[in-house]
């Protein structure tokens, strides 16, 4: 009521002039001055290199069509497809494992709970190189798994240097991030919702499908998008494993340092960036609408 009265023009009183703040005209200038350092940093360290990269990609003998011809190269296309497949697989498996483990850890308290959470999130501290090293120790030529299978007479099982090894390493270092996100979201679930569903006759599985997963969906989508992006761009692990699979970052590295094919490397880099960025954008918009729908 009173707010309306204030907003409405008052016909009987002479309209009060809005108070003129001294120096108001200088406001945009001051704002610009304040933003300038951030703008300079953004331009110098983000925009310029990016533009440069895009231009270099088009600067080879093929010109702008380099962006198409790079992909026409079967090696490059293979690399792109296997990287996409690897990242998608890693994302799905990580989400599945982390959701189950995260929910379990939030729902159950037991001795050693805090220690287990700490251990699970330990890989956060490792660079990709160390992860690769650990995969080799587990599944490499002198690895634990190989030794055990050999002792069992099943022959030496070595998969560190294949897609499987890379997959294992990526999942290993993706789990901590996703599990932390899932746990944070699971803490906020309203237990009354589950009780209401159960009172209506829903089995545990239905409660998971109808109540828990929809509530976790926004968190799973954003965690999954980050996991996907990280896997697309990961380099250290692949490098350490000297894998036979050429993931895209490895291909870029090879083109750049060994072949000195700078234009192709730049074009691939831009492509990698675009695909990852698009995946993140799609995830964000899907998560955004589902958040809105969940109220």
């Amino acid at each position: 009521m009173s707010a309306c009265a204030q907003d409405a023009p008052l016909p009987h009183r002479p309209a009060a002039r809005p108070p003129v703040r001294p120096g108001w005209a200088g406001e945009p200038l001051r704002l610009a001055a304040l933003l300038a350092p951030a703008a300079v940093v953004f331009a110098a360290f983000f925009l310029l290199p990016l533009v440069r990269l895009i231009l270099i990609g088009a600067g080879g003998t093929a010109g702008w069509s380099a962006y198409l011809t790079t992909l026409a190269d079967p090696g490059h296309l293979d690399s792109l497809i296997s990287t996409l497949a690897l990242s998608a697989g890693v994302t799905l498996v990580t989400l599945a494992v982390s959701t189950v483990a995260g929910l379990f850890l939030v729902r159950n308290r037991f001795p050693g709970h805090a220690l287990l959470v700490a251990l699970l999130t330990f890989p956060l501290a490792f660079p990709g190189v160390v992860i690769g090293f650990m995969v080799i120790m587990l599944a490499g030529r002198q690895g634990l798994i190989g030794t055990i299978t050999q002792a069992l007479g099943a022959g030496k099982l070595v998969f560190a240097y294949s897609m499987a090894g890379l997959f294992l390493g990526y999942v290993y270092f993706s789990i901590p991030r996703v599990i932390l996100t899932v746990m944070a979201a699971a803490e906020k679930l309203d237990p009354r919702l589950e009780e209401a569903a159960r009172s209506l006759g829903a089995s545990s599985w239905r409660v998971v499908a109808d109540v828990i997963l929809p509530a976790l969906k926004p968190a799973l989508i954003s965690a999954g998008a980050l996991c996907f992006a990280t896997s697309m761009g990961a380099f250290g692990t692949a490098f350490t494993l000297a894998t036979r699979i050429n993931v895209l970052p490895m291909t870029i590295y090879t083109e750049f340092t060994l072949q000195a094919n700078i234009a192709a490397a730049a074009a691939l880099s831009v492509l990698l960036g675009l695909i990852t960025w698009a995946a993140l954008a799609v995830a964000r918009s899907v998560a955004g609408t589902s958040v809105a729908a969940a109220g």
Binding site: D190, E195, R198, G201, A293
Partner: peptide, 20 residues
């Protein structure tokens, strides 16, 4: 019997409606 097999109706202070 667990709640899902007792056939009881529940109403909570916080409504507990499914937001999705």
């Amino acid at each position: 019997l667990p709640i899902e097999r007792r056939n009881v109706g529940m109403v909570f202070q916080s409504y507990a409606l499914f937001p999705n």
